[in-house]
Design a protein around this nucleic acid. Structure first.
Lengths: 343, 343
DNA sequence: TAAGTATACTAAATCGATTTAGCAAGCATT
DNA sequence: AATGCTTGCTAAATCGATTTAGTATACTTA
C-alpha cells in the first residue's frame, strides 16, 4: 500500500497535475476547470483517500501550518496546561504544534530554534529563557512571527502575553498582611527574568508600605526538588521569626510545603502560606493552600490569537502588542488564621 | 537576510551542489573529495551559518527524524511527565517530537494520524484510545513503526510498553486487606481498555481470595471533575459500609479525595485510600496518600528504545516486543491505620 | 603501450507538491 | 477576415535537498 501522489491521480484520470492541484485547492472556478471534471476529480480523490504530502507542499509554498512552542518544562503543570490549550486553539485554526522543553537554558533554546527554523515552522510561541534576546530579534527580522509568554524582554519589542505579576504579588502580600502576618518571607528563584522581578517588586512594595522588613530567599535555578527543600528548610530555621511564606512559583511551593512539614510548622497558625500558581490539589490540601491562579485558557487564547494575527497578516509586522491578564487569588485556609478577625 | 541554500554555497565556492552535499553528509572521503576542498567547504558553511532545509531533505530521503506522540491529554501529569522524558530520550538520539492530545477519542485520533502521516513522521508513539486497531495495523503495514504504551490491543501485534497493571493492583488491594480493610471499593473508568481491565482484575482477584464482596464504580469517560466528585460522593453515600477506596487512575483520585473531604471522612480511620499513579503532592498530603508509582523514566526509555530499534533496523519488522515494567507501591498513611498492627 | 583503477568532481534525476505562463478551441465583435 | 476575449486545460519551472551515474585526469601494472 504505497502512498498515492498528485501525479498518480493525474495519471489515473488522464489529466494534468496542475488541474488536480487547482481542484484540490479550491481554485477550480477561477482557473476555468469545468464543473464535471472538478466533481470527477474530487470523487476520485475521496475514493482513494489521497492526502497531500505536507513536506512537498511546505517546500513549495514556504508555509507549513506548524507552530513551534518552546516552554521551560512540559512536565510542569503550568506549562503543560498552557500547552494543552494552545494545542486546542491552534488545531481549531488549522495549525499543528511542535513543542519542546528549553530547561530555561539559552544554548539549548538556540539549538532548538535552529532545528525548528530548518523545519520551516510558520511561527513561534516561546516562554523565553534569559539570553536569547538576539535570537528573538533575528526571528522577527526574518519575518517569523513570535509571541512570548510568561516572561518577555523589556528591551525587545515583541508580541507578549503575561499576567499582572506585580499587582498579583502585591495583592497576595497584602492579603497576608491583612490576616495579621508581619514577618513575611518571599521565596523566589535567583533569576533576573521579568516575571520573577515583577513578583518580587509587588511583594516589596506591599511590605514597604507597612514599613516591614523583607525576607527574601533566592533559590538557584537548577536545583533538584530535594535540595530546594533543604535550602528552604535551612532558611526558615535561620529566620525563626518568619510567620508567613510567599512562594513565587509552583515548584518552589512543592518543595517548600515539604520543608514546612519537616519543621513541624502548622499552617496557618505557625505560618501562613501563599503560592503563585494554583495546582489541582492545593484546594484539597489540609489546610487548603491559598494560591494565585493564572487564567490558563485566556493566556493560551491570547497567545494564539496574537500569533494568528501576524500569520494571517491581520496585524502589521512591526505592530507589537502586550497583553496583560489578571489573576485570581484563591484565599484558602493556609493564609487565614482562625483568629485573624480578632487580631 | 534571506535563507541560504546548498545552491548558494555551491555557487559561491564554484563547486557543484553534489560536492557540498557529500561534504556536509560526511561522505567526502568515500566520494574522493579532496581534504583541502572538504575543509574549505566546511569552513565556509560554518561561516555563513548554513542549516539545511529539513523539508527538502525529508522530501528527498523520506526520513524526517520526527516522531509523532499521541497521548490522551498532555496536561495530565502522567502523560506530561512521560512526554518530557520521551522528548529527552528522542532528542538525544537526534529525533524531534510532535505531539498532540487524543482526548481518548478515536475519530480525533484518526484525523491526527492522517495529519502526521502527511507530515511524514518517521514513527509513532501512542497511548491509543479504543477503536483504532485498524489504523494501527495500517500504519505497521505501510512500514511506519509504532510503539503503544499505557494500553494496547491484545488482538493486534505491536511493540508495547505497559506496567504490570494486574499485579500492581492485586498487591495494592492486598495491602489494604492486610491493613484490616474489608469493604474495599474500586473506582474506575467505564472503559474496556486493557490497562483498566487489568487493574480491575487485580482488585477482583485479591478480593475473591478473601471471599469478599466487590464494590465497583465505573465512571463514564468524559465527565468533568466536578461531576466525578458528585458521582463518587453519591456512591460512597449509597454504600456507607465501604471502609477503603482504590482509585484506578490519577484524576479519579483528585475528584475522589474531594468527595471524601466533602463527606467528612477521615483517612485512614474512616476510610483507607490507595491511588493508581503517584502525584507530586500525594506525599505531602495529610495524611500522605498511598499510591502506585509508575516508573516514568523507564517507561519513556523503553518506548524510545523499542521505536529506535525499529527505525534503525536493529529489530525486525514483524518482531514485536511487549515490555512490562513493575511499579512501586508507596505505602503512606492514607492506607495504614495506626491500629493496623493490633487488629 | 594498452588496459585497468584510483582520484576528484559534477550533471541531472528525483522527492511531491504549487504556480506561472501559455496553448488551443470557440465565440463575439468590428 | 482579423482581432480579442472566454473557457478549459497543461507543460514546465520551482522549492532545496540527496543520490545515481557519469566524466576526465592521473597513475599503475602487465
Amino acid at each position: 500500500m504505497k502512498k498515492i501522489s498528485l501525479k498518480d491521480i493525474a495519471e489515473q484520470l488522464e489529466v494534468s497535475k496542475t488541474t488536480v492541484s487547482f481542484v484540490l485547492n479550491g481554485k477550480a472556478k477561477e482557473n476555468h476547470i469545468s464543473e464535471s471534471l472538478t466533481q470527477k476529480i474530487l470523487k476520485y480523490v475521496e475514493e482513494v483517500g489521497y492526502v497531500p504530502n505536507q513536506l512537498a507542499r511546505g517546500l513549495r509554498t514556504g508555509e507549513t501550518k506548524v507552530i513551534g512552542v518552546l516552554v521551560e518544562d512540559i512536565s510542569d503543570p503550568f506549562f503543560s496546561s498552557i500547552a494543552r490549550r494552545i494545542e486546542e486553539e491552534a488545531n481549531s485554526k488549522g495549525y499543528k504544534i511542535v513543542y519542546c522543553s528549553t530547561e530555561n537554558n539559552a544554548d539549548k533554546t538556540k539549538e532548538l530554534l535552529e532545528v525548528y527554523k530548518s523545519r520551516q515552522v510558520d511561527g513561534f510561541i516561546i516562554a523565553p529563557p534569559p539570553g536569547i534576546e538576539k535570537e528573538i530579534q533575528a526571528l522577527q527580522k526574518s519575518n517569523l512571527p513570535v509571541v512570548l509568554f510568561d516572561r518577555y524582554f523589556p528591551e525587545v519589542a515583541t508580541d507578549t502575553v503575561v499576567v499582572e505579576n506585580q499587582r498579583s504579588s502585591y495583592n497576595a502580600t497584602n492579603h497576608l498582611l491583612h490576616n495579621g502576618y508581619k514577618q513575611i518571607a518571599f521565596i523566589t528563584l535567583a533569576s533576573e527574568q521579568v516575571q520573577m522581578q515583577d513578583r518580587l517588586q509587588g511583594y516589596k512594595e506591599a511590605m514597604e508600605e507597612q514599613h516591614l522588613a523583607h525576607y527574601i530567599q533566592k533559590i538557584p535555578f537548577d536545583l533538584k526538588p530535594k535540595k530546594i527543600t533543604k535550602e528552604i528548610q535551612a532558611f526558615l530555621e535561620q529566620h525563626p521569626n518568619i510567620d508567613a511564606v510567599f512562594f513565587a512559583t509552583n515548584y518552589l511551593a512543592d518543595s517548600g510545603l515539604e520543608a514546612i512539614q519537616n519543621l513541624g510548622l502548622e499552617m496557618p497558625a505557625d505560618i501562613g502560606v501563599v503560592v503563585f500558581d494554583d495546582e489541582k490539589l492545593f484546594r484539597l490540601f489540609r489546610p487548603p493552600i491559598t494560591a494565585i491562579a493564572q487564567p490558563i485558557k485566556e493566556i493560551a487564547k491570547s497567545i494564539v490569537s496574537l500569533l494568528l494575527d501576524k500569520l494571517t497578516g491581520a496585524a502589521k509586522k512591526n505592530d507589537y502588542k502586550k497583553v496583560e491578564l489578571s489573576t485570581t487569588l484563591y484565599e484558602r485556609a493556609s493564609s487565614v488564621p482562625v483568629l485573624a478577625a480578632s487580631r
